[in-house]
Design a protein around this nucleic acid. Structure first.
Lengths: 236, 236
DNA sequence: AAGTGGTCTAGACCACATT
DNA sequence: ATGTGGTCTAGACCACTTC
Protein backbone atom coordinates (compact mmCIF):
# COMPACT_ATOMS: atom_id res chain seq x y z
CA UNK A 1 0.00 0.00 0.00
CA UNK A 2 1.31 3.44 -0.88
CA UNK A 3 2.08 5.49 2.18
CA UNK A 4 0.18 8.60 1.15
CA UNK A 5 -2.93 6.56 0.39
CA UNK A 6 -2.68 4.85 3.76
CA UNK A 7 -2.45 8.19 5.54
CA UNK A 8 -5.35 9.54 3.44
CA UNK A 9 -7.60 6.59 4.28
CA UNK A 10 -6.57 6.61 7.91
CA UNK A 11 -7.22 10.33 8.39
CA UNK A 12 -10.52 10.02 6.50
CA UNK A 13 -11.66 7.32 8.89
CA UNK A 14 -10.50 9.27 11.92
CA UNK A 15 -12.50 12.26 10.72
CA UNK A 16 -15.63 10.31 9.77
CA UNK A 17 -15.49 8.41 13.05
CA UNK A 18 -15.59 11.70 14.92
CA UNK A 19 -12.08 11.77 16.37
CA UNK A 20 -11.91 15.27 14.92
CA UNK A 21 -15.10 17.30 14.80
CA UNK A 22 -16.59 19.93 12.51
CA UNK A 23 -14.58 23.14 12.52
CA UNK A 24 -11.84 21.67 14.71
CA UNK A 25 -8.16 22.14 13.99
CA UNK A 26 -6.09 19.16 12.90
CA UNK A 27 -2.56 18.44 14.12
CA UNK A 28 0.09 20.32 12.13
CA UNK A 29 1.71 18.59 9.18
CA UNK A 30 4.98 18.58 11.09
CA UNK A 31 3.47 16.64 14.00
CA UNK A 32 1.88 14.14 11.66
CA UNK A 33 5.26 13.57 10.01
CA UNK A 34 6.42 12.20 13.36
CA UNK A 35 3.21 10.25 14.02
CA UNK A 36 3.20 8.56 10.60
CA UNK A 37 7.01 8.41 10.36
CA UNK A 38 7.12 10.10 7.00
CA UNK A 39 8.17 13.32 5.28
CA UNK A 40 6.26 16.54 4.81
CA UNK A 41 5.57 16.01 1.09
CA UNK A 42 3.84 12.72 1.78
CA UNK A 43 1.58 14.20 4.45
CA UNK A 44 0.80 17.06 2.10
CA UNK A 45 -0.16 14.67 -0.68
CA UNK A 46 -2.52 12.79 1.61
CA UNK A 47 -4.08 16.00 2.89
CA UNK A 48 -4.58 17.35 -0.62
CA UNK A 49 -6.79 14.34 -1.31
CA UNK A 50 -8.88 15.19 1.74
CA UNK A 51 -9.21 18.75 0.45
CA UNK A 52 -10.48 17.41 -2.88
CA UNK A 53 -13.01 15.28 -1.03
CA UNK A 54 -14.25 18.44 0.62
CA UNK A 55 -13.40 17.15 4.09
CA UNK A 56 -10.79 19.66 5.23
CA UNK A 57 -9.60 23.22 4.63
CA UNK A 58 -5.97 24.35 4.65
CA UNK A 59 -4.94 27.88 5.59
CA UNK A 60 -1.36 28.84 4.99
CA UNK A 61 0.23 30.38 8.02
CA UNK A 62 -2.51 29.07 10.27
CA UNK A 63 -3.20 25.37 10.06
CA UNK A 64 -5.58 22.72 8.80
CA UNK A 65 -9.21 22.48 9.80
CA UNK A 66 -12.15 20.13 9.45
CA UNK A 67 -14.74 21.61 7.13
CA UNK A 68 -17.80 22.95 8.84
CA UNK A 69 -20.23 20.46 7.36
CA UNK A 70 -22.46 17.57 8.20
CA UNK A 71 -20.34 14.41 7.99
CA UNK A 72 -23.15 12.25 6.69
CA UNK A 73 -23.42 14.46 3.62
CA UNK A 74 -19.71 14.15 3.03
CA UNK A 75 -19.81 10.40 3.26
CA UNK A 76 -22.37 10.29 0.48
CA UNK A 77 -20.26 12.51 -1.74
CA UNK A 78 -17.13 10.46 -1.24
CA UNK A 79 -19.08 7.33 -1.99
CA UNK A 80 -20.57 8.80 -5.15
CA UNK A 81 -17.13 9.90 -6.37
CA UNK A 82 -15.83 6.39 -6.77
CA UNK A 83 -17.98 5.38 -9.71
CA UNK A 84 -17.79 6.15 -13.36
CA UNK A 85 -20.46 4.11 -15.10
CA UNK A 86 -24.08 5.06 -14.81
CA UNK A 87 -24.82 1.49 -13.87
CA UNK A 88 -23.39 2.06 -10.48
CA UNK A 89 -25.36 5.10 -9.42
CA UNK A 90 -28.00 2.82 -7.92
CA UNK A 91 -25.64 0.47 -6.14
CA UNK A 92 -28.13 -1.40 -4.02
CA UNK A 93 -30.65 -2.02 -6.77
CA UNK A 94 -30.85 -4.84 -9.27
CA UNK A 95 -29.68 -3.46 -12.63
CA UNK A 96 -30.77 -5.11 -15.88
CA UNK A 97 -30.73 -4.13 -19.54
CA UNK A 98 -32.89 -4.68 -22.58
CA UNK A 99 -31.10 -4.41 -25.91
CA UNK A 100 -33.25 -2.58 -28.49
CA UNK A 101 -30.73 -3.02 -31.22
CA UNK A 102 -27.08 -3.99 -31.62
CA UNK A 103 -25.56 -3.35 -35.05
CA UNK A 104 -22.38 -2.31 -36.79
CA UNK A 105 -22.65 0.88 -38.83
CA UNK A 106 -20.39 3.38 -40.54
CA UNK A 107 -19.59 6.32 -38.28
CA UNK A 108 -21.51 9.52 -38.96
CA UNK A 109 -19.55 12.79 -39.03
CA UNK A 110 -20.53 13.51 -35.40
CA UNK A 111 -19.36 10.10 -34.20
CA UNK A 112 -16.14 10.45 -36.22
CA UNK A 113 -15.42 13.76 -34.58
CA UNK A 114 -16.17 12.63 -31.03
CA UNK A 115 -14.18 9.40 -31.30
CA UNK A 116 -11.50 11.00 -33.48
CA UNK A 117 -11.52 8.16 -36.02
CA UNK A 118 -11.18 7.96 -39.80
CA UNK A 119 -14.26 8.81 -41.90
CA UNK A 120 -16.73 5.96 -42.27
CA UNK A 121 -14.91 3.65 -39.87
CA UNK A 122 -17.10 0.88 -38.53
CA UNK A 123 -18.57 1.34 -35.07
CA UNK A 124 -20.93 -0.60 -32.85
CA UNK A 125 -24.34 1.04 -32.70
CA UNK A 126 -25.97 0.01 -29.44
CA UNK A 127 -29.33 1.04 -28.09
CA UNK A 128 -30.30 -0.16 -24.62
CA UNK A 129 -32.90 0.46 -21.96
CA UNK A 130 -31.55 0.06 -18.45
CA UNK A 131 -33.67 -0.89 -15.49
CA UNK A 132 -33.19 -0.62 -11.74
CA UNK A 133 -35.44 -3.03 -9.87
CA UNK A 134 -37.38 -3.53 -13.14
CA UNK A 135 -38.23 0.14 -13.50
CA UNK A 136 -36.85 1.86 -16.63
CA UNK A 137 -34.32 4.52 -15.63
CA UNK A 138 -32.27 5.37 -18.67
CA UNK A 139 -32.11 4.86 -22.44
CA UNK A 140 -28.57 4.69 -23.78
CA UNK A 141 -27.20 5.07 -27.27
CA UNK A 142 -23.58 3.97 -27.43
CA UNK A 143 -21.05 4.06 -30.26
CA UNK A 144 -17.69 2.30 -30.03
CA UNK A 145 -14.99 1.60 -32.65
CA UNK A 146 -15.15 -2.14 -33.37
CA UNK A 147 -11.38 -2.56 -33.32
CA UNK A 148 -11.01 -1.05 -29.84
CA UNK A 149 -13.67 -3.30 -28.30
CA UNK A 150 -13.44 -6.61 -30.17
CA UNK A 151 -15.58 -9.63 -29.49
CA UNK A 152 -18.57 -7.81 -28.10
CA UNK A 153 -21.80 -9.79 -28.05
CA UNK A 154 -25.38 -9.12 -27.03
CA UNK A 155 -24.82 -11.05 -23.82
CA UNK A 156 -22.27 -8.55 -22.59
CA UNK A 157 -24.72 -5.73 -23.24
CA UNK A 158 -27.35 -7.29 -21.02
CA UNK A 159 -24.91 -7.05 -18.15
CA UNK A 160 -22.34 -4.31 -17.85
CA UNK A 161 -20.37 -3.03 -20.81
CA UNK A 162 -17.70 -1.60 -18.54
CA UNK A 163 -17.24 -4.89 -16.77
CA UNK A 164 -16.56 -6.64 -20.10
CA UNK A 165 -14.08 -3.96 -21.13
CA UNK A 166 -12.19 -3.85 -17.85
CA UNK A 167 -12.25 -7.52 -16.86
CA UNK A 168 -12.30 -9.52 -20.10
CA UNK A 169 -10.50 -7.15 -22.46
CA UNK A 170 -8.28 -5.93 -19.62
CA UNK A 171 -8.41 -2.39 -20.90
CA UNK A 172 -8.06 0.44 -18.46
CA UNK A 173 -10.51 3.32 -18.52
CA UNK A 174 -8.75 6.49 -17.53
CA UNK A 175 -11.19 9.35 -17.89
CA UNK A 176 -14.43 10.51 -19.36
CA UNK A 177 -15.68 13.85 -20.56
CA UNK A 178 -19.32 14.44 -19.82
CA UNK A 179 -21.84 17.08 -20.72
CA UNK A 180 -25.22 17.21 -19.06
CA UNK A 181 -28.21 18.90 -20.66
CA UNK A 182 -31.96 18.90 -20.20
CA UNK A 183 -34.80 18.63 -22.71
CA UNK A 184 -38.22 17.11 -23.30
CA UNK A 185 -38.44 13.40 -24.04
CA UNK A 186 -39.17 12.46 -27.64
CA UNK A 187 -41.89 9.93 -28.47
CA UNK A 188 -39.64 6.88 -28.28
CA UNK A 189 -38.09 7.92 -25.00
CA UNK A 190 -41.53 8.63 -23.57
CA UNK A 191 -42.51 5.05 -24.33
CA UNK A 192 -39.26 3.39 -23.24
CA UNK A 193 -39.04 5.28 -19.95
CA UNK A 194 -42.76 5.04 -19.20
CA UNK A 195 -43.20 8.82 -19.16
CA UNK A 196 -46.01 11.22 -20.05
CA UNK A 197 -45.82 13.28 -23.24
CA UNK A 198 -43.61 16.35 -22.72
CA UNK A 199 -41.96 15.07 -19.55
CA UNK A 200 -38.37 16.22 -19.00
CA UNK A 201 -35.26 14.07 -19.33
CA UNK A 202 -31.63 14.62 -18.38
CA UNK A 203 -29.16 13.81 -21.14
CA UNK A 204 -25.55 12.90 -20.38
CA UNK A 205 -23.37 13.01 -23.46
CA UNK A 206 -20.10 11.25 -22.78
CA UNK A 207 -16.79 10.43 -24.43
CA UNK A 208 -14.72 7.93 -22.48
CA UNK A 209 -10.98 7.27 -22.89
CA UNK A 210 -8.64 4.35 -22.37
CA UNK A 211 -5.33 4.94 -20.66
CA UNK A 212 -3.62 5.08 -24.04
CA UNK A 213 -5.56 8.24 -24.78
CA UNK A 214 -7.89 6.70 -27.36
CA UNK A 215 -11.60 7.46 -27.18
CA UNK A 216 -13.42 4.13 -27.03
CA UNK A 217 -16.98 5.22 -26.31
CA UNK A 218 -19.31 7.98 -27.35
CA UNK A 219 -22.71 7.78 -25.73
CA UNK A 220 -25.93 9.54 -24.95
CA UNK A 221 -27.70 8.52 -21.76
CA UNK A 222 -31.25 9.78 -21.50
CA UNK A 223 -32.42 9.64 -17.87
CA UNK A 224 -35.89 9.76 -16.35
CA UNK A 225 -35.99 13.14 -14.63
CA UNK A 226 -37.06 11.71 -11.31
CA UNK A 227 -34.11 9.31 -11.19
CA UNK A 228 -31.31 11.62 -12.13
CA UNK A 229 -28.89 13.60 -10.06
CA UNK A 230 -25.29 14.64 -10.55
CA UNK A 231 -23.12 15.78 -7.69
CA UNK A 232 -19.88 17.64 -7.93
CA UNK A 233 -17.39 19.46 -5.77
CA UNK A 234 -15.76 22.45 -7.36
CA UNK A 235 -12.45 23.60 -5.91
CA UNK A 236 -10.69 26.83 -6.76
CA UNK B 1 5.48 33.01 -10.71
CA UNK B 2 5.63 29.49 -9.37
CA UNK B 3 7.76 27.26 -11.51
CA UNK B 4 5.29 24.41 -11.88
CA UNK B 5 2.56 26.83 -12.96
CA UNK B 6 4.89 28.38 -15.51
CA UNK B 7 5.71 24.97 -16.96
CA UNK B 8 2.02 24.04 -16.94
CA UNK B 9 0.99 27.19 -18.81
CA UNK B 10 3.91 26.91 -21.20
CA UNK B 11 3.23 23.28 -22.09
CA UNK B 12 -0.49 24.02 -22.43
CA UNK B 13 0.26 26.75 -24.94
CA UNK B 14 2.71 24.58 -26.83
CA UNK B 15 0.06 21.88 -27.09
CA UNK B 16 -2.80 24.19 -28.02
CA UNK B 17 -0.60 25.94 -30.57
CA UNK B 18 0.02 22.63 -32.27
CA UNK B 19 3.70 22.14 -31.44
CA UNK B 20 2.62 18.69 -30.28
CA UNK B 21 -0.26 17.04 -32.10
CA UNK B 22 -3.08 14.67 -31.16
CA UNK B 23 -1.78 11.26 -30.15
CA UNK B 24 1.86 12.35 -30.33
CA UNK B 25 4.39 11.49 -27.64
CA UNK B 26 5.77 14.27 -25.46
CA UNK B 27 9.42 14.52 -24.41
CA UNK B 28 10.19 12.41 -21.34
CA UNK B 29 10.01 14.05 -17.93
CA UNK B 30 13.77 13.60 -17.63
CA UNK B 31 14.42 15.59 -20.79
CA UNK B 32 12.09 18.37 -19.69
CA UNK B 33 13.95 18.59 -16.39
CA UNK B 34 16.94 19.70 -18.42
CA UNK B 35 14.96 21.98 -20.73
CA UNK B 36 13.19 23.78 -17.87
CA UNK B 37 16.15 23.50 -15.50
CA UNK B 38 14.12 21.90 -12.76
CA UNK B 39 13.62 18.67 -10.85
CA UNK B 40 11.43 15.70 -11.68
CA UNK B 41 8.81 16.44 -9.00
CA UNK B 42 8.16 19.87 -10.43
CA UNK B 43 7.69 18.58 -13.98
CA UNK B 44 5.39 15.90 -12.61
CA UNK B 45 3.29 18.48 -10.79
CA UNK B 46 2.90 20.56 -13.95
CA UNK B 47 2.01 17.48 -16.01
CA UNK B 48 -0.56 16.33 -13.46
CA UNK B 49 -2.42 19.59 -14.04
CA UNK B 50 -2.45 18.88 -17.78
CA UNK B 51 -3.86 15.41 -17.06
CA UNK B 52 -6.65 17.01 -14.99
CA UNK B 53 -7.43 19.34 -17.88
CA UNK B 54 -7.84 16.27 -20.07
CA UNK B 55 -5.01 17.36 -22.38
CA UNK B 56 -2.52 14.55 -21.90
CA UNK B 57 -2.27 10.92 -20.85
CA UNK B 58 0.55 9.38 -18.84
CA UNK B 59 1.53 5.72 -19.13
CA UNK B 60 3.96 4.39 -16.61
CA UNK B 61 6.82 2.55 -18.24
CA UNK B 62 6.05 4.09 -21.61
CA UNK B 63 5.77 7.85 -21.68
CA UNK B 64 3.42 10.79 -21.93
CA UNK B 65 1.07 11.42 -24.83
CA UNK B 66 -1.24 14.09 -26.13
CA UNK B 67 -4.84 12.97 -25.76
CA UNK B 68 -6.49 11.89 -28.97
CA UNK B 69 -9.04 14.68 -29.04
CA UNK B 70 -10.07 17.77 -30.91
CA UNK B 71 -8.11 20.69 -29.41
CA UNK B 72 -10.94 23.15 -29.89
CA UNK B 73 -13.13 21.07 -27.61
CA UNK B 74 -10.42 21.01 -24.98
CA UNK B 75 -9.98 24.75 -25.10
CA UNK B 76 -13.66 25.19 -24.30
CA UNK B 77 -13.43 22.83 -21.34
CA UNK B 78 -10.38 24.53 -19.88
CA UNK B 79 -12.11 27.86 -20.27
CA UNK B 80 -15.28 26.59 -18.61
CA UNK B 81 -13.31 25.18 -15.68
CA UNK B 82 -12.15 28.54 -14.44
CA UNK B 83 -15.51 29.84 -13.27
CA UNK B 84 -17.58 29.10 -10.26
CA UNK B 85 -20.59 31.41 -10.36
CA UNK B 86 -23.42 30.74 -12.73
CA UNK B 87 -23.20 34.35 -13.86
CA UNK B 88 -20.15 33.56 -15.83
CA UNK B 89 -21.41 30.64 -17.86
CA UNK B 90 -22.49 33.07 -20.58
CA UNK B 91 -19.31 35.12 -20.66
CA UNK B 92 -19.94 37.15 -23.77
CA UNK B 93 -23.52 38.12 -22.93
CA UNK B 94 -24.85 41.03 -20.95
CA UNK B 95 -25.96 39.69 -17.56
CA UNK B 96 -28.55 41.54 -15.49
CA UNK B 97 -30.70 40.69 -12.48
CA UNK B 98 -34.14 41.53 -11.23
CA UNK B 99 -34.63 41.23 -7.48
CA UNK B 100 -38.01 39.71 -6.66
CA UNK B 101 -37.48 40.00 -2.97
CA UNK B 102 -34.65 40.66 -0.53
CA UNK B 103 -35.44 40.02 3.13
CA UNK B 104 -33.96 38.75 6.34
CA UNK B 105 -35.65 35.68 7.80
CA UNK B 106 -35.02 33.05 10.44
CA UNK B 107 -33.35 29.97 8.98
CA UNK B 108 -35.59 26.98 8.35
CA UNK B 109 -34.35 23.56 9.46
CA UNK B 110 -33.14 22.79 5.91
CA UNK B 111 -31.17 26.04 5.70
CA UNK B 112 -29.74 25.47 9.18
CA UNK B 113 -28.54 22.06 8.18
CA UNK B 114 -27.00 23.12 4.88
CA UNK B 115 -25.22 26.17 6.31
CA UNK B 116 -24.46 24.43 9.59
CA UNK B 117 -25.65 27.34 11.73
CA UNK B 118 -27.53 27.64 15.02
CA UNK B 119 -31.34 27.14 14.95
CA UNK B 120 -33.29 30.22 13.92
CA UNK B 121 -30.21 32.26 13.01
CA UNK B 122 -30.95 35.17 10.71
CA UNK B 123 -30.20 34.72 7.05
CA UNK B 124 -30.68 36.78 3.93
CA UNK B 125 -33.51 35.46 1.81
CA UNK B 126 -32.87 36.52 -1.77
CA UNK B 127 -34.95 35.74 -4.82
CA UNK B 128 -33.64 36.90 -8.19
CA UNK B 129 -34.29 36.40 -11.86
CA UNK B 130 -31.14 36.57 -13.93
CA UNK B 131 -31.09 37.58 -17.56
CA UNK B 132 -28.57 37.15 -20.35
CA UNK B 133 -29.10 39.68 -23.11
CA UNK B 134 -32.52 40.47 -21.55
CA UNK B 135 -33.75 36.90 -21.82
CA UNK B 136 -34.60 35.19 -18.51
CA UNK B 137 -32.20 32.30 -17.94
CA UNK B 138 -32.35 31.35 -14.29
CA UNK B 139 -34.34 31.97 -11.11
CA UNK B 140 -32.19 31.88 -7.98
CA UNK B 141 -33.12 31.50 -4.35
CA UNK B 142 -30.17 32.29 -2.12
CA UNK B 143 -29.74 32.06 1.65
CA UNK B 144 -26.71 33.51 3.43
CA UNK B 145 -25.94 34.06 7.13
CA UNK B 146 -26.12 37.82 7.69
CA UNK B 147 -22.98 37.91 9.81
CA UNK B 148 -20.82 36.25 7.16
CA UNK B 149 -21.89 38.66 4.42
CA UNK B 150 -22.46 42.02 6.15
CA UNK B 151 -23.53 45.19 4.44
CA UNK B 152 -25.33 43.58 1.54
CA UNK B 153 -27.76 45.84 -0.31
CA UNK B 154 -30.15 45.46 -3.20
CA UNK B 155 -27.68 47.23 -5.50
CA UNK B 156 -25.14 44.45 -5.10
CA UNK B 157 -27.77 41.89 -6.01
CA UNK B 158 -28.50 43.60 -9.30
CA UNK B 159 -24.90 43.04 -10.27
CA UNK B 160 -22.86 40.08 -9.09
CA UNK B 161 -23.09 38.74 -5.55
CA UNK B 162 -19.75 36.99 -5.92
CA UNK B 163 -18.04 40.15 -7.03
CA UNK B 164 -19.23 41.94 -3.87
CA UNK B 165 -18.06 39.10 -1.68
CA UNK B 166 -14.65 38.71 -3.27
CA UNK B 167 -13.79 42.31 -4.04
CA UNK B 168 -15.51 44.43 -1.39
CA UNK B 169 -15.60 42.00 1.52
CA UNK B 170 -12.29 40.47 0.44
CA UNK B 171 -13.45 37.01 1.36
CA UNK B 172 -12.01 34.05 -0.47
CA UNK B 173 -14.34 31.44 -1.89
CA UNK B 174 -12.65 28.08 -1.75
CA UNK B 175 -15.10 25.49 -2.92
CA UNK B 176 -18.69 24.69 -3.63
CA UNK B 177 -20.72 21.51 -3.45
CA UNK B 178 -23.31 21.22 -6.16
CA UNK B 179 -26.12 18.84 -6.93
CA UNK B 180 -27.94 18.94 -10.23
CA UNK B 181 -31.45 17.57 -10.68
CA UNK B 182 -34.22 17.89 -13.22
CA UNK B 183 -37.95 18.49 -12.78
CA UNK B 184 -40.93 20.34 -14.21
CA UNK B 185 -41.20 24.07 -13.63
CA UNK B 186 -43.77 25.21 -11.09
CA UNK B 187 -46.23 28.00 -11.90
CA UNK B 188 -44.01 30.83 -10.70
CA UNK B 189 -40.96 29.54 -12.50
CA UNK B 190 -43.01 29.10 -15.67
CA UNK B 191 -43.90 32.77 -15.52
CA UNK B 192 -40.49 34.09 -14.52
CA UNK B 193 -38.60 32.10 -17.11
CA UNK B 194 -41.17 32.62 -19.86
CA UNK B 195 -41.84 28.91 -20.26
CA UNK B 196 -44.86 26.81 -21.21
CA UNK B 197 -46.72 24.84 -18.56
CA UNK B 198 -44.92 21.57 -17.77
CA UNK B 199 -41.63 22.60 -19.38
CA UNK B 200 -38.51 21.12 -17.79
CA UNK B 201 -35.98 22.99 -15.69
CA UNK B 202 -32.52 22.08 -14.39
CA UNK B 203 -32.01 22.74 -10.70
CA UNK B 204 -28.56 23.31 -9.25
CA UNK B 205 -28.55 23.11 -5.47
CA UNK B 206 -25.35 24.55 -4.10
CA UNK B 207 -23.51 25.13 -0.84
CA UNK B 208 -20.47 27.38 -1.17
CA UNK B 209 -17.60 27.71 1.33
CA UNK B 210 -15.12 30.36 2.30
CA UNK B 211 -11.50 29.43 2.79
CA UNK B 212 -12.07 29.28 6.54
CA UNK B 213 -14.37 26.33 5.96
CA UNK B 214 -17.59 28.14 6.76
CA UNK B 215 -20.59 27.73 4.46
CA UNK B 216 -21.68 31.22 3.38
CA UNK B 217 -24.25 30.41 0.72
CA UNK B 218 -27.01 27.89 0.16
CA UNK B 219 -28.83 28.33 -3.10
CA UNK B 220 -31.17 26.84 -5.63
CA UNK B 221 -30.69 27.91 -9.23
CA UNK B 222 -33.56 26.97 -11.51
CA UNK B 223 -32.42 27.10 -15.13
CA UNK B 224 -34.39 27.25 -18.36
CA UNK B 225 -33.78 23.84 -19.90
CA UNK B 226 -32.63 25.25 -23.22
CA UNK B 227 -29.92 27.37 -21.56
CA UNK B 228 -28.39 24.86 -19.24
CA UNK B 229 -25.41 22.59 -19.60
CA UNK B 230 -22.86 21.27 -17.15
CA UNK B 231 -19.56 19.85 -18.28
CA UNK B 232 -17.22 17.72 -16.28
CA UNK B 233 -14.11 15.63 -16.67
CA UNK B 234 -13.98 12.53 -14.53
CA UNK B 235 -10.57 11.03 -13.86
CA UNK B 236 -9.93 7.69 -12.25
C1' DA C 1 10.03 36.88 15.36
C1' DA C 2 8.08 32.53 15.13
C1' DG C 3 5.42 29.16 13.09
C1' DT C 4 2.24 27.57 9.46
C1' DG C 5 1.55 25.40 4.89
C1' DG C 6 3.65 25.74 -0.20
C1' DT C 7 7.39 25.08 -3.40
C1' DC C 8 11.55 23.04 -4.90
C1' DT C 9 15.63 20.10 -5.05
C1' DA C 10 18.74 16.00 -5.88
C1' DG C 11 18.70 11.71 -5.52
C1' DA C 12 16.96 6.93 -3.95
C1' DC C 13 14.09 3.23 -4.86
C1' DC C 14 9.66 1.07 -6.79
C1' DA C 15 6.13 -0.60 -10.32
C1' DC C 16 5.47 -1.24 -14.84
C1' DA C 17 6.18 -1.91 -20.00
C1' DT C 18 9.12 -2.86 -23.76
C1' DT C 19 13.08 -5.03 -25.85
C1' DA D 1 18.22 -5.19 -19.09
C1' DT D 2 16.77 -0.77 -19.82
C1' DG D 3 14.02 3.02 -19.30
C1' DT D 4 9.56 5.07 -18.17
C1' DG D 5 6.63 7.44 -14.74
C1' DG D 6 5.37 7.04 -9.38
C1' DT D 7 6.66 7.41 -4.61
C1' DC D 8 9.40 8.99 -0.94
C1' DT D 9 12.97 11.45 1.63
C1' DA D 10 15.50 15.17 4.21
C1' DG D 11 16.14 19.44 4.08
C1' DA D 12 16.18 24.26 1.98
C1' DC D 13 13.77 28.34 1.21
C1' DC D 14 9.34 31.07 0.32
C1' DA D 15 4.64 33.21 1.35
C1' DC D 16 1.61 34.04 4.63
C1' DT D 17 -0.56 34.84 9.36
C1' DT D 18 -0.28 35.80 14.06
C1' DC D 19 1.87 37.61 18.12
Amino acid sequence: MKKYLFIYEDMKNRILNGEFKSGEQLPFEKELCVEYETSKMTIKKAFDLLVEDGLIIKKRGVGTFIKDIDMKEIEKLIFAKQFMGLTTSNPEKKVTSKVLHFDIIKATPLIEKQLNIAPESFVYDIHRIRYADDQPIVVEKTYMPIDLVPGLTEKHLEKSLYQYIENELECKIQSSHRKITVRKADDDETEYLDLEKGDPVAVAEQVAYFDNGKAFEFSFSVHRYDHFSAQLIITK
